[in-house]
């Protein structure tokens, strides 16, 4: 007797509600090419990406604050394998603390030759200054892929 296996592929679509805060964040990226955070009234922290409330103070945030476009790398990695629903690899991505923000935002790093990982990593070390770049207005759809970071000269 052969021990059988059963192969299954599921394809389920979700249509997630972003809510007011994330909708405004992506609308500003799409229409104005700028990154906004939300300030917590109790501790003054500027949360980027913005959230409707602070998970530290549990207060509702109450003010929009533009941050960046400059910032510093807090963490990075380079990956060479493909992921579903993402552009072709390799990718460099990580977290950047934008000027004026209290928390770092995840995004891609571009403008670096990733063919030699060790040399690429030297250019992305934690603390490196970067600037936020945006896709052309016609190409922006209100998504994380509309912006990326490049190392400042």
């Amino acid at each position: 007797m052969e021990l059988m296996t059963r192969k299954e592929v599921w394809n389920i679509t979700y249509n997630h509600a972003l809510g007011k805060t994330a909708s405004e964040f992506f609308t500003q990226i799409k229409e104005s090419a700028r990154i906004l955070g939300r300030r917590c009234p109790s501790d003054g922290r500027v949360l980027v990406p913005p959230r409707a409330f602070s998970d530290e103070s549990l207060e509702a945030t109450d003010e929009w604050v533009e941050v960046g476009p400059g910032g510093r790398i807090e963490a990075f990695t380079i990956t060479y394998e493909p992921f579903q629903n993402l552009p072709e690899p390799p990718y460099a991505f990580g977290y950047v603390l934008l000027d004026g923000a209290s928390t770092a935002i995840g995004g891609y790093f571009k403008g670096i030759d990733l063919s030699d990982p060790a040399r690429a990593a030297e250019k992305l070390v934690v603390g490196t200054r970067v600037k936020t770049c945006f896709a052309e207005e016609k190409d922006r759809i209100g998504d994380v892929l509309d912006f990326w970071f490049e190392v400042q000269d």
Binding site: A22, P49, N85, G106
Partner: peptide, 8 residues
């Protein structure tokens, strides 16, 4: 699915 799904 808002800020992180589009990252690897």
């Amino acid at each position: 699915p808002y800020y992180h799904r589009r990252l690897p």
